[in-house]
């Protein structure tokens, strides 16, 4: 038992150590990578991917996957900026809660398909994503929606407290809140036991469909929060703003040591995975590597990281 805990500590530390090594290695070419300004800026950028990945971790722990991230994110951004764009005081205040509620609603639709109809989450969430796209196109006419970000959204995304980005604080605060929720309420145990064996969990008296619903609602809300932050960062919502976040989210969660089959993983690991992915893509673009080579290097490094992980497993 003791040994297992130690092994999992190493696992969680793995993406963090890899991030540090990568940034040290890159700083031998560009010393600016070690400046506080650069690193704090990266934490801000990482926060956008970070909040989405926290939600994705919860779903992946179940052994499911949420491919509706792009338009849960995009929809939330469109709703919040449109509400602010009305210049109505009450609607402006309601912008962020409305966007988050929208995310939870997307989670409920996902839950209906996955928990009640037992449709593979990979297909159902994909279908939900294309329906959301359809609704967005119908409402915005395919153009970038008019609207603006409220002061609250801008502060959340770009503000700083003693040089520390507010977005980073939001990310970490959300992570801590979710950890407490998972650990204290027993919810986390339900998640991973469903990931291991749903039938046994059901026989043990757990309302498995309820757990699946809540997990997808958390994921949807997290994606929506990501959308609100991104809308605040860009001061607008735009079509397909969520597309570049789908695959990196999955990669970050898996590099963070969460098994894609469910049952095993941690939120702390995901934070490490997000840090790694964000630093990697930032370093590659700062070094002015062409998009083609960025894709190639990105793919190779993810494979190497995963090979290292499984290699460790086999030794222990």
């Amino acid at each position: 038992m003791n040994l297992r805990i130690k092994a999992s500590y190493i696992e969680i530390a793995f993406p963090f150590v890899a991030s540090v090594l990568m940034i040290l290695g890159a700083s031998t070419v560009f010393p600016e990578f070690l400046s506080a300004t650069y690193l704090l800026q990266q934490l801000q950028i990482a926060a956008f991917l970070g909040v989405i990945a926290l939600g994705a971790t919860v779903v992946i722990l179940l052994g499911h996957i949420d491919l509706s991230v792009p338009w849960a994110l995009g929809g939330a951004a469109i709703i919040s900026t449109t509400l602010v764009g009305t210049d109505h005081a009450v609607l402006t205040v309601l912008a962020v809660p409305a966007a988050l509620l929208f995310g939870a609603f997307v989670g409920i639709i996902n839950g209906i398909g996955v928990a009640w109809f037992r449709i593979p989450s990979m297909v159902w969430t994909l279908a939900v994503n294309s329906m959301l796209l359809g609704v967005a196109v119908l409402n915005t006419g395919g153009f970038n929606p008019k609207g603006a970000a409220s002061n609250l959204m801008i502060t959340l995304a770009t503000g700083q407290i003693a040089r520390v980005p507010v977005a980073f604080i939001v990310w970490i605060a959300l992570a801590i809140a979710m950890m407490l929720f998972l650990k204290r309420g027993g919810f986390g145990r339900y998640l991973s036991s469903i990931g291991y064996n749903e039938k046994a969990t059901y026989l043990a008296g757990v309302s498995t469909s309820g757990v699946i619903f809540i997990a997808f609602m958390i994921a949807g809300t997290c994606s929506a929060l990501g959308g609100v932050l991104l809308a605040g960062y860009a001061n607008q919502a735009y079509q397909s703003m969520g597309d570049p976040y789908l695959m990196p989210t999955i990669a970050a969660v898996v590099i963070g040591g969460t098994s894609i089959l469910g049952g095993k993983g941690s939120l702390v690991g995901t934070i490490g995975g997000v840090t790694f992915i964000t630093l990697l893509s930032s370093i590659l673009s700062v070094m002015q590597i062409s998009e083609a080579w960025r894709n190639i290097i990105f793919g190779c490094i993810i494979i190497v990281m995963l090979l290292l992980q499984t290699f460790k497993h086999r030794r222990s």
Partner: peptide, 20 residues
């Protein structure tokens, strides 16, 4: 490694090669 994540990564590599 799980196929979903392997092909996610190799997909990125193949897209990169196509762009080259």
């Amino acid at each position: 490694i799980q196929p979903i994540i392997v092909t996610l990564a190799t997909g990125s590599i193949f897209t990169g090669l196509a762009l080259l």
